[in-house]
Design a protein around this nucleic acid. Structure first.
Lengths: 178, 178, 178, 178
DNA sequence: TATGAATGAGTATTCATTCAT
DNA sequence: TATGAATGAATACTCATTCAT
């Protein structure tokens, strides 16, 4: 029985992960209007299971956001500001939801917390860049986050190609540079 | 008779305008998921009337976009690039849909046309700014439109306040400047 | 003024006829689900005019039925039973509504009256045919009307071609023959 | 587990059957304009359930047709032509939709198949009747199906009573007889 | 715990009918 | 009297969520 329970729990954990991964894909591809059913199918489970793990569609979206924000925060660690921004924007397409998360406020305490984490990590990169003299000293984290958000959304919705992304970012980087 | 016909048409025209205005407000506030019914209520007409003027919800959205794009194009005429961008971003909040129009492609022939109009008007401003030596010569209209789109979306979704908008744009303008 | 009134009345009469004709065509082509608007367009008038002449869609349908039933009654006059039946069936396609009228009961007093007229005219043909010895004496008008209705509906809905109509009627005529 | 799955499925199967039965009744009584909601109510389920089983109103109608056509085909097996026709016509009232199915073409592949099944079964009866010398040799299956369709529709829409049905069929049988 | 069938409120769209012009 | 815009009830279909198995 203990074994059963354990394996059940293991299954549950695996399911949770599968659902989260599936949801990320599905929402990235079809936007937030994608169906819970679609997520369930992609995850290889039944709808009921999705709702057991995430009591609400909104909760599922929040979970995705949290996950993505964490991933971005890790990306920020030990990086360089301009590289980081470039990476985020390049990957925006695969994280539509994150971007929308970045753009929203107050959705959810946990999301807000994760967002703060990303902000802190980015603030570190900014500070370092300013100490290195790469970025003008008067630039504040608020503006950097704003530019990050804006560019990610733009890249995402407008479907900029790699070249346009680079040239657009080049302008922004020029504006940030000392 | 002429008078009668005109007044009939006038009523219809008034309603059409009311619906368009209401739709602009409603969609700006609740996003594209807002109900046609909501629009009707706000416009003070019955749903049927909305559908008589705009046969589809999508058509209604397209009409809003067209209208806003035209407004922006007019704004661009006889202006200065940085002022124009600032204005667009400042007003983004009231034109969520436009921004999304800017970000979409191929929605509708007429919308595409209006979008091209805005692009042309902006291209003029850019050329003039480059001739005046205000903007670097290597900057292309593509990047300017990209920045316009991105910043509008960012300002809109993230709810930047006036100060943040100004500071963020300042960075971008610095990046564009010769 | 009198002239005006007269010409107005003349217009009205002309409109009524145009609407009736248009409705016959439209309903024949698209079935009873056709729109009042379609009828109006085909008649070259506005919907309001249709409703001024026929207060209800049902009333319009009833009017068509009456008209068609009268036409068929006239067709029956001075004819021969089998020829008459053949003609009715051949023309069924152009009078879908009539056929449905034939199949309904109690729709409308006036329609019922017109239906009775057709029945009487057919009864005359039957009597004559029986006197001539062409049709068995025990056949009653009820059966003839039933066969007429059935065959018209069948021909209409199933889209029998001319050959099939002829062969099917041949069997029925054989059954009726003395 | 197997039992559980089966009982789940059993529930679903029971519902499907209930919906089909309800739909047959409802459409027989109110014609094809009857509401999906009405069907749901009669079946004792929610609308959603109806749509889960039959994704479209049309699909539901097609399912009814298929079912009825199958029932009729079985009726044809091991029977005698005139008896068979009589039965079909007697039961027409309870199968309005079938009759319309008989009258339509190309609605749906499966329906077409079922229709062909009925035609084949009827053709067998016809062949046997002709071999037995009961029916004239030159009669073809096309005409028989045409008569079957026509009479069923007539009986249905015009509400013939039993006596009239018998007398009308008697004429047709006379026409078919050798 | 997982399943997937059932639920039912919600939404876009149509169309007979009314009524201001 | 004719017009055609406005009305709003009606209807097919969707989808987040619940719950029996």
């Amino acid at each position: 029985l203990t074994t059963d329970e354990k394996s059940l729990r293991a299954d549950a954990v695996r399911n949770r992960a599968a659902i989260l991964a599936a949801a990320t894909d599905v929402f990235a591809e079809h936007g937030p209007k994608a169906t819970t059913e679609q997520v369930a199918v992609k995850a290889g489970v039944a709808v009921g299971t999705v709702f057991r793990h995430f009591p609400t569609k909104e909760a599922l979206l929040a979970a995705i956001m949290k996950q993505s924000l964490r991933r971005l925060s890790e990306l920020a660690a030990d990086g360089e500001l301009f590289d980081f921004i470039t990476q985020v924007v390049d990957e925006a397409a695969s994280t539509q939801t994150v971007v929308e998360a970045l753009a929203q406020h107050g959705v959810d305490v946990e999301v807000a917390h994760a967002l703060q984490g990303l902000r802190d990590a980015t603030a570190d990169l900014l500070a370092r860049a300013q100490q290195a003299g790469t970025v003008r000293p008067e630039v504040k984290i608020d503006e950097v986050m704003a530019l990050l958000t804006a560019t990610s959304q733009g890249a995402l919705h407008a479907g900029w190609d790699r070249g346009l992304r680079r040239r657009t970012l080049a302008i922004i980087f020029a504006g940030l540079s000392a």
